[in-house]
Amino acid sequence: MSGHSKWHNIQGRKNAQDKKRGKIFQKISRNLYTVAKAGGPEPESNPQLRLEMDKARAANMPKENVKRAIDKASGIGGAKFEQITYEGYGPGGTALMVLALTDNKNRTASAIRAAFSHHGGSLGTTGSVSYLFDRKGYIVILRKGLDKDEDGMLEDVLEAGGDDLKTFDDRFVIFTDPKELAKVRNSLQKKGYKLDTSEIKMIPKTVTEVPSDKVQQYTGLLDELNENDDVQDVYEAAKLPKHAE
């Protein structure tokens, strides 16, 4: 019996690891598609695509998965994907924006609407919550192994054309005008910085706390949305209470 329990535990851990790895590959695939669609499928002329391909290699993502994502962006294989943003209200009136990449709008809209409904929320109309967010260029540089203090980083960010810098123990986060993202990114890379993230994000103007009695519903909604293969990203104008983090 103990041997069976041990096998069951090991299998459970393996399944959890496989699921986590699958989600990582899924996110990288979507990012590869997005940047290849925006800047072209050739890494030599698309720095952002090179960055995503480096992430794929670091995650041990199979080469055929990388090629398939880039081929989708090039229209190879016939499937046509488009990005769609959905807006809605989560439990307690929390505001959420969901960015999806889909080849079937009806399927995706139905699944996202159901996710909100399952967890005490509702899908809204275009513009219902987007006014609570700013569209920003978003760059992350990890501080590990980086010999640069906040003042020095700020000087380089301003020189590169960035708008703002936030400093955390493990990373620098840089915000830019979306139209200036490529320029700022390229400038920082020329200075020798290795970027962990470089993308356009919806940044909440204000963040409200999820009511304590709605935390389980709220996290359930996020889980269901993130488990959807069509969902690329979920932007939140909300935060969990400290005891639930």
Rank of each mutant, 00 (worst) to 15 (best):
A115N: 12
I139F: 12
T197N: 11
L225E: 11
G93C: 10
E224C: 08
R68V: 01
D164N: 13
P62L: 03
L240T: 12
P241N: 05
S45E: 14
T126Q: 13
Y89L: 15
G192K: 07
A115W: 09
I139N: 01
R143N: 03
E87Y: 02
K20E: 14
D223H: 14
E82L: 06
M97H: 03
P43Y: 08
S198H: 01
G121R: 11
I70Q: 08
S5Y: 05
G152C: 04
V184D: 05
F81N: 00
K63Y: 06
K201L: 13
E236V: 09
T34G: 03
G40D: 14
T34R: 15
N186W: 01
D164F: 10
I139R: 05
K194Y: 06
K27G: 04
A79M: 00
G161W: 03
T206A: 15
F175V: 01
T94L: 07
D170R: 14
A69L: 04
G220N: 02
E64Q: 11
T176W: 10
S29T: 02
Q17D: 07
E82I: 02
V35A: 02
A56T: 10
G152R: 02
K14C: 03
K179Q: 11
N31G: 12
N106I: 12
P241D: 07
R185C: 03
D147G: 00
G137R: 03
L96A: 03
K63C: 00
F116D: 08
D233L: 13
D177I: 05
P62Q: 07
N46A: 11
R57Y: 08
L222G: 06
A95V: 08
L240P: 11
G137D: 07
A114N: 15
D163A: 06
E227Y: 06
V157M: 13
L221R: 08
V184N: 07
L123I: 14
N226L: 14
G93W: 05
Q11R: 04
Q217R: 05
D156M: 13
F116N: 08
N60C: 04
A73P: 00
Q17F: 05
M202V: 00
E227A: 13
P211M: 07
P62I: 02
F133E: 07
Y33N: 07
Q83C: 03
G161N: 05
G120D: 07
I112F: 09
G137I: 02
G77M: 04
E52F: 07
A95S: 15
A73R: 01
